[in-house]
Amino acid sequence: MTQHGALVTLDPTSGPLDRKDTRKLPERPDTLNGAVVGFVVNGLGKADALMDALYEELSNHAELAGRVKILKDDVSIPPKKEDFARIVSESTVAITGFGG
């Protein structure tokens, strides 16, 4: 459509790549002493073994109170709703991975 020598077109994207989320991140504990660590394992390579090793390693730094570990059914999908809820209800802090 040419108007007054100009070509007008529509934007082909679904909007800017950057958005702003104003939700505040939860407050961190002072230490991991007494923490239950939630592990969200994406299943890539040795991610599961790494999470186990991390729990052992973190236990050398703090008196952990336990762990909750869930395994995703596919690297690129969110955890199952019930697994996600379990991490939220039973963990103090959480670790996800391994990947991008």
Binding site: L7, V8, T9, L10, D11, P12, T13
Partner: peptide, 25 residues
């Protein structure tokens, strides 16, 4: 009514260069 934002260009060449610059192609 179309919802997408509109962009104005001088001519086709201007559009094409901008399309590349904006990462649309």
């Amino acid at each position: 009514t179309l919802h997408a934002p509109r962009h104005q260009f001088q001519d086709y060449d201007d559009f094409l260069e901008q399309a590349y610059a904006k990462g649309w192609t």
